[in-house]
Write a protein that binds this DNA or RNA. Structure first.
Lengths: 192, 192
DNA sequence: TCGTATACGATACGATCGTATACAGGGGCA
DNA sequence: TGCCCCTGTATACGATCGTATCGTATACGA
């Protein structure tokens, strides 16, 4: 892997772990195994590095989004969910970067959130078209709900080990959680 | 208000708005209208100031929690929700501070999250005792779900104006949201 | 009224921040 | 071979960070 990409991955990791302000350029360069000057050479500045990271992460999510749109059959929904779960497992750093990026309002983080909303709006619309949506559902809030639900575990992840005894993305955790969420979206958990 | 408390409020506001690392002690002192030295005098250090803010915010949430426990009648649930909504409206800065605090793992932020979980566990247990819970509900995940749902709007708040045209805590937004959430917890929004 | 502790402000200090500059190797092309 | 751009490193620079120090004002008990 070339040094430019090494810098991007190191930056993504450190921004995700400590936040943009707390992660220094020297630390990033050290983790990437290159010298500080390269950040300026390739990205102009620390902010430029963040913008490039934003671009790559947004591209990943866009990819996730467009792949689901390609399959316009009955299996589109399952594919979308499957893709998303697989992506979270494979690119945990990217997800944790999204978490960190949303902590401060930048053009990049706004775009990230918009992408997520777009995916979820599409998901809700697909469900409606397939007749899987209940009547009179506030679709905009349904999409927002799904975004919150997608980001929630990432937000809690750093505390998960101490609070629940395991990672939010541990297999058992994912299983319990998806069982609960399946129940919630189809029938809720409280009597009316 | 004495200068010590002014520093606490200014710190809470700036930590919430820009994050702990990005908010400087000079900036905090300026917003409080005092000199930098006072932070050291009263709290020892910037980290000490954060700890004091954590203590105060945790105390607020504890207060919220214990007030609900006092009313052990049928109206306990409504009172808890009412109190929480009123608190969010009155102390928006505190809520946004919780949001920011959860971005980095410190003893204070861990305690904050634990408090929130405790409130929600109690809420779920109260519902069960009153027979309002459906059968075979995973109560631990229900509480976690409620925490995520409580924090979600705070996480999205900085982007809300641009994405939805108004604040997450605008009256109309709150109304639509609580209508949707009521529906979700009692019957979901998708057919099974 | 005096002594002392506390509250507070101004400023200095060392470290670290992000950025700028100077320079070294290494292919591609005339 | 000579020139040049590109990638890369090492180091210097100015700003700003959190913290420490010192001087002064104010309040309070003897």
């Amino acid at each position: 892997m070339n040094r430019r990409q090494r810098l991007i991955l190191a930056g993504r990791h450190l921004f995700a772990a400590k936040g943009y302000s707390a992660a220094g350029v020297r630390e990033i360069a050290a983790e990437a195994g290159v010298s500080i000057g390269l950040i300026r050479t390739h990205f102009g500045s620390k902010a430029g590095l963040r913008e490039e990271i934003d671009r790559q992460v947004i591209a990943q999510i866009e990819d996730l989004c467009s792949r689901a749109s390609e399959h316009l059959g009955t299996e589109a929904l399952d594919l979308l969910v499957e893709d998303a779960v697989e992506w979270v497992e494979r690119e945990r750093d990217a997800l944790l970067y999204v978490r960190a990026a949303l902590m401060e309002k930048t053009p990049g983080s706004q775009a990230l959130l918009r992408q997520l909303l777009e995916i979820m709006r599409r998901f809700v619309a697909l469900n409606r078209e397939r007749g899987l949506l209940q009547d009179d559902v506030d679709e905009e809030w349904a999409a927002t709900f799904l975004v919150i639900d997608f980001l929630g575990p990432a937000v809690l992840e750093p505390f998960s080990e101490e609070e629940f005894g395991m990672s939010m993305y541990h297999r058992e955790m994912v299983k319990r959680r998806s069982a609960f969420m399946n129940r919630v979206v189809t029938q809720g958990f409280m009597k009316s």
